[in-house]
Amino acid sequence: MALEVRDRLVGPVAGALGAWTVREAAESVLYVETEPDLADTAVFCEAYDVAPESSANCVVVAAKRGGNTVLAACLVLADSRVDVNNAVRRHLGARKASFASLDLVVAETGMEYGGVTPVGLPLGWPLLIDEAVAHTPYVLVGSGQRRGKLILPGSALAQLPGAEVLSGLGV
């Protein structure tokens, strides 16, 4: 159980697991150590014989309207991609949406690139989850670092702070 190995997790993830008010969801999270060189989803799935539909990618999007920028995390199954230009832009009421820069993501989340996870995101960030992820019995996501993965029910992800389940987020 990830709660038992919080000392091996990055600060934001460890803190979020400990503070998660839905205890059953927090207790359902498992942590597995993996090779850092195999962290990228396609490589990970091939090396560990994991079906892409059992793994999810968490990407950060910058949505802009006027002079305001909102950062949001999007979670889709690894066999699909985030519909940034339509689903995300419309849902966030933005004029323009694009993937956030690597430097910004690392600085804002306190996580490693290639390991960004929906568990432990900055407070106030929207977390947009494709409904296919929410309906997955168990899904692998990043752990905040490249050397591990979290495994948890899709339904638990939908109970994270700021989570919104959307139809058509992944295409």
Results as ranks from 00 to 15, higher is better:
M1S: 12
A2G: 09
L3D: 08
E4N: 08
E4D: 15
R6T: 15
D7S: 14
D7W: 03
L9Y: 07
L9K: 01
V10K: 01
A16D: 01
A16H: 06
A16E: 11
L17I: 09
G18F: 07
A19H: 09
T21P: 01
T21V: 12
T21M: 11
V22T: 08
R23L: 13
R23T: 14
R23S: 14
A25P: 09
E27Y: 03
V32C: 13
V32D: 14
E33S: 14
T34A: 02
P36M: 10
D37Q: 08
D37E: 15
L38C: 10
T41P: 07
C45D: 12
A47D: 02
S54L: 14
C58S: 14
C58K: 08
V59H: 06
A62I: 12
R65Q: 13
G66M: 11
G67L: 10
N68C: 08
L71E: 05
A73K: 07
L75T: 15
V76I: 12
S80I: 01
R81D: 03
D83G: 04
V84Q: 04
N85F: 09
N85S: 10
V88M: 11
R89M: 05
L92R: 12
G93Q: 14
A94G: 08
R95P: 04
A97E: 10
S98L: 10
S98G: 15
S101C: 02
D103P: 10
L104R: 13
L104Q: 13
G110R: 14
M111F: 05
M111L: 10
E112P: 11
Y113N: 13
P118T: 01
L121I: 01
P122D: 00
L127E: 06
I129P: 03
I129T: 02
A132Y: 01
H135S: 10
Y138S: 04
S143M: 09
Q145V: 10
R147T: 05
G148F: 09
L150N: 03
G154P: 09
G154V: 00
L157I: 12
P161T: 08
E164W: 01
V165K: 00
S167Y: 00
G168E: 02
L169V: 00
V171R: 11
